[in-house]
Amino acid sequence: MRNVEAVRDADQPDETAERLTRLFRELRQRQSGAFSRQQAVAHGITDKVLSRRCRARQIQRVHGGVYVDFTGPLPWETRVWAAWLAYAPDAALTGATALRWYGVEEVRGDDRIHLAVPHPRRVDQRAGILVSRHRGFAAQLHGSRTPPIVRIEVAALMRASADPNASRQAALLLDVCRQRATTPQRLLAELDSLTRLPARQVLRRIVLDAADGVQSFLEQVYLRRVERAHALPTAERQVRVESTDGSGRRVRYRDVRYSPYGLVIELDGHAGHSDSESRWRDMHRDNSTAMSGELTLRFGYQLVDEPCLAAAQVATALRLRGWAGTARACSASCSVARNAA
């Protein structure tokens, strides 16, 4: 962009031109190389210069009136800035784009940049950008950030609501809480304001599970389809446990713990548990539990297909350790009664 910045109004004093050059460079750095025609003109760059540099492949046009100061593929951050500049200033990052901008891990979504605009605004869709119209747009924004972005609670709820898959809805909302990007209480408060949100009641039940200590989709399956559905005792969740080994004091968390009966349930929902390091970590954790006098039962994604069998095993372990209750069949075909000791 040095040549672009060099061609200015000849009447501009050198000092003014140098200041504009510096300010324009700083602007582009903040915007990951993207800039709008209006920004270029405000810094002394003419349309004629922009056209010439595009033809010389020194800059590239991304959207109408939006450029980047390099050629070649665009990094994700540059694509976000370019998309926002195409609809600025009355637009904001939302959905999967906002979640990724906030740093939420493992956000799944399509490759488009998701933007929100005020509901009365009518806009044309552009390639690679998905624009949604939001009621109460101004009230959903996070402070005065640039580019504007909706609050993380709005982004998470909008993203989950748009996904027809209940397990992915749960995984997203539980993940943002587990990663401490937000809290169940904030999500519930935001839900109260999003009265037109599709699947609102389903999302509320997921967030209420998060408020009860559930941190993953598998933990939710265990809570709903194993523990509650079969009338097992109410467990503690994500229980902090400190222990000491050769490397010093360590802190671990038990996924599910029936403290009165000395029974711990560990739920392994990640493929990473198949590698040797993770298996060793799991065995070390189970051994530590055993040395404390507690019993560990470990379940994976078989819970989704066989919750009744898991409930029978947990009920048997609980009864062996003093529980006087009886597991309840969740349906006419439930096998918990004949499988539980």
Rank of each mutant, 00 (worst) to 15 (best):
A88C: 05
A88G: 09
P89H: 12
D90M: 11
A91V: 06
A92G: 09
A92R: 02
L93K: 03
L93Q: 11
L93T: 03
G95H: 14
A96C: 07
T97H: 04
A98V: 01
R100T: 05
W101N: 01
Y102V: 04
Y102H: 06
G103F: 04
G103T: 05
V104P: 01
E105A: 12
E106F: 06
D111T: 14
D111M: 07
R112C: 14
R112Q: 14
I113T: 14
I113D: 07
I113E: 06
L115Y: 02
A116N: 00
V117C: 13
H119D: 08
R121A: 15
R122I: 08
R122E: 04
D124K: 13
D124R: 14
A127E: 14
I129G: 03
I129W: 04
L130N: 13
V131M: 12
V131E: 00
S132C: 08
S132A: 12
S132P: 02
F137Y: 15
F137N: 01
A138H: 15
A139V: 04
S144Y: 08
R145F: 06
P147R: 05
I149C: 15
V150C: 10
V150E: 02
R151V: 09
R151P: 01
M158L: 12
R159G: 06
A160Y: 02
A160I: 03
A162W: 10
P164Y: 10
P164V: 00
A166V: 12
R168Q: 13
Q169I: 03
A170K: 01
A171F: 04
L173E: 06
L174Q: 11
D175F: 03
R178K: 05
R178D: 15
Q179H: 07
T182K: 04
Q185V: 12
R186V: 05
L187D: 03
L188A: 14
E190M: 14
E190R: 13
L194E: 03
L194Q: 15
T195D: 09
R196D: 15
R196G: 08
L197T: 04
P198T: 11
P198N: 08
P198I: 09
A199H: 15
L203K: 02
R204S: 10
R205H: 06
I206N: 00
I206V: 11
D209Y: 02
D209G: 12
A211W: 08
D212T: 12
G213F: 09
